[in-house]
């Protein structure tokens, strides 16, 4: 999923070798982050809403909405939480 829409073109994501873009923050060790994008509590529901439509979840966010469904967004959120910190 993360590969199908290539979140990697803007983020460095552990487990995704390519692409490794830098327009957005690295998502490594990100489940320990307190606030999501510096604004929202870091919970699965907020994360799923954010990765699907960031500008709606956090007004002014610089990450665009992604063409994915709500269910897909939950899978993405699950993956991001499941990543082992290295």
């Amino acid at each position: 999923m993360i590969e199908r829409v290539s979140c990697g073109s803007c983020h460095v994501i552990p487990g995704v070798d390519w692409p490794r873009g830098r327009a957005g923050p690295s998502l490594e060790g990100f489940d320990d982050a307190g606030l999501l994008a510096g604004a929202l509590p870091n919970t699965p529901a907020n994360l799923a809403a954010f990765v699907r439509d960031a500008p709606a979840a956090k007004p002014g966010s610089t990450m665009p909405a992604m063409p994915i469904t709500a269910a897909e967004a939950q899978d993405v959120a699950a993956y991001l939480y499941g990543m082992k910190d290295e």
């Binding site: 199908r4 829409v5 290539s6 979140c7 990697g8 073109s9 803007c10 692409p19 490794r20 873009g21 830098r22 327009a23 665009p64 992604m66 063409p67």
Partner: peptide, 20 residues
């Protein structure tokens, strides 16, 4: 020839092709 073509890569390329 380096990225698939869809919404995510298109936005990512325009936003920061220099990092890709």
């Amino acid at each position: 020839g380096i990225l698939p073509n869809h919404r995510g890569t298109m936005m990512g390329w325009v936003a920061d092709s220099q990092s890709i």
